[in-house]
Amino acid sequence: MTLDETDTRQRVAPDVPWVTLVWDDPVNLMSYVSYVFRSYFGFDRKEAERLMMQVHTKGRAVVATGAREQMEMHVDALHGYGLWATVSKADE
């Protein structure tokens, strides 16, 4: 997995092997997904829009990287917002 230089929030120690994935669905509004990324993760508007567009065009995006328990907490919270999110190992 590669992270571009703007991904400071996602830059983590290489030995942390879990990610939070958000998947595209035909229901959630682009504006809402972007809003959730900003209000829950604290991303700035540009980063939230970039990740939202990645979900929309690529079908999914990694929105967080870290310890497994933390990723499960994110996924649970995103389910509360109605987004489709899962935990994965980073290399999958």
Binding site: L21, E72, A85, T86
Partner: peptide, 20 residues
């Protein structure tokens, strides 16, 4: 509404679901 937390790991998903 209550989706799986793991896409391809039934065991991990069952545990995640039980907890959440």
């Amino acid at each position: 509404l209550l989706p799986p937390g793991y896409a391809d790991d039934d065991e991990a998903n069952a545990e995640f679901r039980r907890l959440t």
